[in-house]
Amino acid sequence: MATQRKQRMTIVSFIVVGSAIAVGLVLFALNEGINVFYTPSEVAQGEVPSGQNFRIGGMVKSGSLRSGELQGTEVQFMATDCLVDIPVSYTGVLPDLFREGQGVVADGYIDGNGVFQASQILAKHDENYMPAESVAAMEASGATCDP
């Protein structure tokens, strides 16, 4: 009886460990493919297949946003990961959270001039939730560039 139970326990552990290893290997093999965007540094290092659509993710560099305030006009900004800046150009509707100093994910391609021509802009929110008065306190303490 006890040996049978031990046997079943082994089988159960094999199921869990086995499937975990299998899934782990698949994820390891897919590695980069699972990432939803490339960072500006990766783009600069040429890790991105050229002439193809891909997503770039970073922060909208403070002071780099140029646009007509009207929706639908061209928007230009620098996507940065604090190491490399990539110029991005986009025409279309922007999400509510798109603003300077906030995370951004853009879908598009790099044109001949090295400008990322975005066809879609998504905003990435950070994991901090706070009311406006806390932000003032945080900025006083010196929040820095960290995407």
């Binding site: 939803v36 999400p95 509510d96 959270l97 879609q120 802009i121 998504l122 905003a123 990435k124 929110h125």
Partner: peptide, 8 residues
């Protein structure tokens, strides 16, 4: 409204 997409 926040991301600009309902799914990714």
């Amino acid at each position: 409204p926040t991301w600009g997409t309902w799914w990714i």
